[in-house]
Simulated assay, not measured.
Amino acid sequence: MDFILNDEQKLMIETARKVGEAFGPDYWRQHDADKAFPSECWQAICDAGLAGAMLPEELGGAGLGMVEVALIIEELCAGGAGATLAQVFMLNPIFGGVSVAKYGTDQMKRDWLPKMCSGEMQFCMALTEPDAGTNSLELRTTAVADSGGWRLNGQKIWITGVPQSQKMLVVARTTPVDQSPKKTRGISLFMIDTDREGVSYTAIDKLGTNTLSSSQVYFDNVHVRADELIGDVDKGWHQLLDVLNTERIVTTAGLVGAGRLAIRLGVDYAKERRVFGTTPIGAYQSIQFPLAQHWAELEAAKLLNLKAASLFDHGVPFGSESNAAKLIASQAASAVAERAMQVMGGMGFAKEMHAERLWRDARLFRFAPVSEEMILNYIATANLGLPRSY
């Protein structure tokens, strides 16, 4: 395996680093306080040609792969954003880009993907439901065939980025479970206008990731046109998995970047802070060892994530690698952000030091987009051959 970056990748990483540093920790602290979407940062990412890195050049992208996307996201998040910036990539290049590029019609690709790359159009995805979280096969949102399309009814929860989006990828059951040969059949994907009659949403007050809103979404007899179907009717489950598995790679890249940022904040403080005499606290092994441990964990997560991304780019199954990488990265990023707070002592509790925001944001990803317990279930059955418990 070749771990040496080529010139194009180096240039791309340097571009991402400059954009990330232009919107440093102070920018994100203010937007977190204001609960404001990072519009300026996302537009700069689009203007630099980073948003469409893995989309074809004829559709406004750069024609690169998932490896490059992971490297871009890591660098952007390390610059000051922390893990939450990766979510914007989930919404747009993944929920919008992957779903449309792989399963959308030629018209969808021409109309939407260039606008996603330029920042003119944003996406979100409505999957999770109050009674169907991890167990997505139990979703109750229905799309019933109607003249010229479908009628959509149901409720979703924890849907990210709804207010900023123009398009929403909706997962609904088009054939009832009792009429399907198996649970994985009868599910379909639709890309509808967010601003459409019958669609409403309310914000959820939450601990972190405040720069991206989370909402409950309601569908009340929403008309869905026939040309808004993504992929094939009743066969959306496996198409959805293609989208969700790439989401793991994006999440991990953001967590690795957030972890790098937390280590940098902790190290910079430890080099300057003196408590007893003239020796900086960074010389104490009780300060050094935990930071060094988490650095090693983040490096391991990064390499495993790049392996997953490379497998994706070569059309090879990558579920085990992407899930395991996300497991390690989520635990390490959350732990090192808290460790940075500990290094800073009482000042770690102050918002001006940024570490507390990194912890609040990173903590989400120990149970989202898939919980660590479900990842361990997956590894136990898929990799160890153990029987399922659910």
Rank of each mutant, 00 (worst) to 15 (best):
G319Y: 09
T174A: 14
E321Y: 04
N92T: 12
A296Y: 14
L139S: 10
K109C: 06
F219N: 07
E299I: 05
N323A: 11
F123W: 10
I187Y: 05
P369G: 02
M125Y: 07
I192F: 02
L169N: 03
V243P: 01
T278I: 06
C117D: 07
R29Y: 02
T105E: 04
K10V: 14
E247Y: 09
G104M: 10
V222N: 12
A48H: 10
I230R: 03
D234I: 00
F3R: 11
M353K: 13
Q164P: 02
Q107V: 10
L304R: 15
I375L: 04
A143W: 09
K10N: 07
D268I: 01
A380P: 01
R363D: 08
E352Q: 11
S389H: 09
V100L: 12
C124W: 10
D193E: 00
G315Q: 06
S180L: 09
G63D: 11
I379C: 01
E247S: 13
Q239H: 14
I249W: 03
L376C: 03
D26K: 13
T202S: 14
D242Y: 06
G346W: 02
I45R: 09
D193M: 00
A22T: 01
R360A: 08
T105M: 02
E138P: 00
C41M: 04
N377Q: 09
F289G: 01
A70I: 00
I379T: 08
Q179D: 08
E338M: 10
S310T: 12
V233M: 11
A350Q: 08
V370K: 02
E57H: 00
W150H: 03
R185E: 12
G97T: 07
M125V: 08
K156P: 05
Y269R: 15
E356V: 13
I159Q: 10
L212N: 04
G149L: 11
V98N: 11
L386E: 06
G97E: 03
L384H: 05
D106T: 11
A143S: 09
L291A: 04
K115Q: 15
K10S: 13
A308K: 08
A296H: 10
A325P: 00
W359T: 00
Q30K: 15
L137N: 08
D268E: 13
L386T: 00
W359G: 01
V144S: 10
A296G: 03
D195C: 06
T128A: 06
L229G: 02
F276I: 12
S39H: 12
E14P: 00
A62R: 14
M1A: 01
Q216N: 13
E8Q: 05
M66A: 09
L364K: 08
L376S: 04
Q331S: 07
Q285Y: 13
M344D: 00
